[in-house]
Nucleic acid binder design. Sequence first.
RNA 1: GGCGCUAUCGUCUAACGGUUUAGGACGCCGCCCUCUCAAGGCGGAAAUACGGGUUCGAUUCCCGUUAGCGCUACCA
Length: 486
Amino acid sequence: MNPSSNIRVRFAPSPTGFLHVGGLRTALYNYLFARKSGGVFILRIEDTDRTRYVEGAIESLIKTMEWCGLEYDEGPLKGGPYGPYIQSERLDIYKHHVQILIDKKKAYYCFCEPQRIEELRRSQEKQNLQTKYDKHCLHLSEDDINIKLKSGSKFVVRLNVEPNKIIVVDDIIRGSVQFESNLLDDQILLKSDGYPTYHLANVVDDHLMQISHVIRGEEWLPSTPKHVLLYDSFGWQKPIFAHLPLLLNPDKSKLSKRQGDVAVEEYRAKGYLKEALINFVALLGWNPGTEQEYFSMDELKKQFSLESINKSGAIFNVEKLNWLNFEHLRNKSENDVLKLLKEELLRSRFKEIKLEDETLKKIIQAMRPRVTFIKEFLEKSSYFFEPPKEYEKEAVKKHWKSDIPDKLKILIEEFSKLEQPTKEDYETVLKNTAQKLNVSNGKIIHAVRLAISGVSGGPGLYDIIEILGKDETVKRLKDAIEQIKY
RNA sequence: GGCGCUAUCGUCUAACGGUUUAGGACGCCGCCCUCUCAAGGCGGAAAUACGGGUUCGAUUCCCGUUAGCGCUACCA
């Protein structure tokens, strides 16, 4: 980390459930930007809505980020110089700052009952007017306010938006965006339960934590003028804003549950590699301007830049993710795949099966170009772990002619004579036998493949035989002759 | 409804006024390789939403239309 860098960014999720892939991308971009520039990456928990709080969500969030390799420099558990990093533990900080705004007449107490607000909105809607608070309580006298406060009346604190102003939001990705203050509501800053709303807490914390760049989803762009107003009211310097394009469902709506998986945990459970998920999500809205599409985290850290982020939303397309998973799986070292395969075996119905590492490595070599997920080693080539339970019907019809059993019996005899055979020995014997029987190699090969694997596709036959070994191969050939009907 | 954002192959995207018969990747199709299935190699189909400007010249700049999306909560 470069201590001379003033760049400080944060990922600020609310703990309402699992980490969302959209959240993952936001976190990733923040993380990459921090790492690229020698800055600090902060995790802050925005739990100001008690009604939506989900037990255990913070822990799950941290665990998932850890799994993804997004290590934060300051945040919950870890601490840091600007803590606490959980907003519900910062309530008096917000109250203090709200008081500053009230003193400056930039905010005011509002004692309106929810029914009044409701009626106001209904009448505005009926007249086709914009629905917003009518500043009713702004005109309360100091005495009125004190009496109400003393009597324990419920209140909220609202932002006092000045009319007839143009508010400019400068955004790295979108350029300069203008808003009319007349169209802004007197946003509630402090709720009646004493908790701040997002707008207040976010601005106060970003300032206090000295956040230099606010990198967040585009859904926040419309409320950014309110934040700008707050920074100005406090007399604080504004951070640099970067509003990221949205991640979309296949129907182009904002990525959501219901139209597929959105939780990082779900992709993890399905067997996606973190490397693939990170690589994929990084490319949704960003590219380095070259034709490179395969990235390691280290490469992303070196190449990422805010300036090359796109403006338009991107559909989360699983097919490309699958391809990246295939590519990342293929590029892993044999030992890493071995480790993952062993873990997968322990979770599977093959957990009792003990195979030598050397054998497992041969399976990995044989199957690697044929699998996208680790679990496919077990699904697509279960015959390495158990004898075929049945034989593919189509293949039997095609390759198991009436003369096959007699021919295979001869091959079995030849195989049985071999001592410590190598892959090449099996090949030589099979070819010689085919020649002796006056049939094509292919005819024998297809039949043997079907007999020992039960299926018609897969790695080279001699690779399969070598992995199974002579005894198992011979046994399966005999069993097949018994069992396959034609 | 209001406000805002966005607009290149089905999808992710390149092009930062001319080097473009609009490039790459995923997916799809075909061929080669081959004991099968993959992988790999080669090739193919496939896009600048529409209409006006500006310019010698627009995918690129401006305006409008249309469409999509987002926001419009005492949710974030």
